[in-house]
């Protein structure tokens, strides 16, 4: 009996309190029935080894408990694609938040705290993962068994994306990076609008006057790119019209970037101590070269989008 008690305790431990007594009571009755059959067959009370063999045949206590709780899963197979998408959007959000923090820190101190950035991303990503999984656990295991809502209710074949070529699908990763980069640069260019005035006064780095003249134009183009980016995040496929808009946006961003890359310096040290002058000299070189090649890349991408639009319209 000791073995059965130990087994039942182990099973009970893995069961929710609300169902514990009911399931263990029944399981114990079934085990005793089986032992009784062995006893009748052998003409004597079952030995400990026979009891142990019966319990082993029944299975590990946690497995047995789990088999009574089927239907309970972290995320149901039906909701899994939605769960993956939610995690994906969550990661974008985490990346954006970490980038903003990184940007504020950089503008305040002039230090590129890469490790802090990675640390922030990991910490926030874990919180996001736990939260999203928690929500989907609740949705996958509704109280009373009746689903709270059916996310796949509203659809029709006519609303499915008109994708005929593999490349028309927009990669989730690529689109996330594009969207995040756009948002980061929009916030960086317009830091004066959102950084608290107290912190603004402490900033030790600023764009030069000629660069600042480009900010409204660049911001307007980036906002347009973000709007198109939102559309792409939701629908995630290319059409001729979106390819042409993409080409126009890339071209429109490339021109100011190429022009700004020729301006020297791009950022200046505004601190009274002028302690970052040397670092900024190198920084300006790097930013200039970086902007130039980003501009060239965007020109290439604009051409590529137009080629794809031509391909698709044939």
């Amino acid at each position: 009996m000791d073995l059965i008690d130990r087994y039942m305790n182990a099973v009970a431990q893995a069961l929710p309190e609300s169902r514990r007594d009911e399931i263990t009571r029944e399981l114990r009755a079934n085990i005793l029935d089986k032992l009784e059959a062995i006893s009748e067959e052998q003409g004597r009370a079952p030995t400990d080894a026979e009891i142990s063999a019966v319990l082993v045949a029944l299975g590990h206590p946690q497995k047995v408990a789990g088999s009574f709780l089927t239907g309970q899963q972290l995320v149901s197979p039906e909701l899994f694609p939605l769960y993956k998408r939610a995690l994906h959007y969550g990661l974008i959000l985490v990346f954006i938040l970490a980038l903003i923090q990184f940007g504020v820190h950089f503008l305040n101190s002039g230090n590129l705290a890469i490790w802090n950035f990675v640390h922030e991303i990991i910490g926030k990503a874990l919180i996001m993962f736990a939260s999203v999984t928690g929500v989907f656990y609740l949705l996958s295991n509704p109280v009373g068994g009746k689903p709270y809502f059916d996310p796949y209710q509203c659809w029709s074949p006519e609303k499915l994306p008109p994708v005929t070529r593999g490349w028309q699908r927009i990669s989730a990763c690529e689109q996330s990076v594009d969207f995040t980069t756009d948002l980061f640069f929009l916030l960086l260019l317009n830091y004066a609008l959102w950084i608290p005035s107290g912190q603004l006064a402490n900033l030790t780095i600023a764009f030069t006057e000629p660069v600042q003249q480009w900010i409204p134009i660049l911001s307007a183009i980036i906002i347009a790119s973000l709007i198109v980016g939102l559309w792409k995040l939701v629908y995630r496929y290319w059409m001729v019209s979106t390819l042409i808009i993409e080409a126009a946006i890339n071209g429109a961003i490339a021109i100011p970037l190429l022009l700004v890359s020729r301006l020297k310096p791009i950022v200046v040290d505004t601190s009274t101590t002028q302690e970052h002058v040397e670092a900024l000299r190198i920084g300006n070189e790097v930013i200039g070269i970086g902007l130039f090649w980003v501009g060239i890349w965007l020109v290439f991408m604009a051409g590529w989008s137009m080629y794809r639009a031509w391909q698709l319209s044939r």
Partner: peptide, 11 residues
């Protein structure tokens, strides 16, 4: 298998 039958009956 008992591990299949008993939970099935409960379900």
């Amino acid at each position: 298998d008992e591990g299949t039958l008993y939970p099935l009956v409960r379900r």
